[in-house]
Design a protein around this nucleic acid. Structure first.
Lengths: 124, 124
DNA sequence: TGAATATGTAGGGAATTCCCTACCTATTTA
DNA sequence: TAAATAGGTAGGGAATTCCCTACATATTCA
């Protein structure tokens, strides 16, 4: 019964991409997430579980609540995979480059004393 | 029973990602593709069909042969989706930026044959 | 403590996925 | 033209996915 739990599989489902979109803005409880969708709470719970299992979401317990936080570093696996084929479509490439440059410029300016990124949550 | 045929679903399958990897280098016939995998030819044929249906592959007929070509612009849908969350993980962001800059430099200047693949071999 | 709240999970059903073995058509070649 | 070659597709089976309705557990509140 071993299911395939990789990031590619995780983001294949539209509802899970929706959950990611929600959590990217702020962390939310299970119920709050479920309110955004037509499906039932248990179903959302399962989707979040899937996201947790592949490292895209972590849970912060707070009393009886579970606050779900996006942990989107794992999406790097996807962008790495796509990036190796980026040379095939230069137009999009330029857009992306521009976007990324812009974002990282902002980051470099705003944070100076923070340069450790050595996480090891679910790493492989 | 309409199946969901979107790019996210298409790249969720490891074999289909393998086919994309193959076709990114050069176009190949169905049989040639099938030779690279353990699965049977009909199975590969189905996978390619899926890729065609979501626009990642096109077919050029040549006699009784079907030459499959990668048409990876559609992957932009994926990279766009990922890019909107890129600000969340700066480390990977830098890698990506570096990579993309490098690639586009090559494009802007000229076509030099320089292939350093800093791929991580630890697939799964 | 008992009720309400937040969430997890079991069990199951319908649809889909992934793979296989035939079998069928189209094209090339002997 | 018959045989070989390239490829498509039907039919089916096993596993997985996605969703649901109970039901169970933990925490907070009255």
């Amino acid at each position: 019964m071993e299911k395939r739990r990789d990031v590619f599989q995780a983001i294949a489902d539209p509802t899970r991409r929706g959950i990611i979109a929600l959590l990217a803005g702020q962390s939310m409880t299970m119920n709050a997430i479920a309110d955004y969708f037509d499906t039932t709470r248990p179903t959302i719970s399962e989707h979040v579980k899937t996201l947790i299992e592949c490292g895209l979401v972590v849970i912060r317990k707070e009393g009886r609540e579970r606050h779900c936080e996006a942990k989107l570093e794992k999406l790097a696996e996807v962008s790495d995979w796509v990036a190796q084929y980026a040379k095939a479509w230069s137009k999009t490439l330029d857009n992306m480059e521009t976007y990324l440059l812009e974002v990282s410029e902002k980051q470099k300016k705003s944070k100076n004393a923070k340069s450790e990124n050595t996480r090891k949550s679910g790493g492989k």
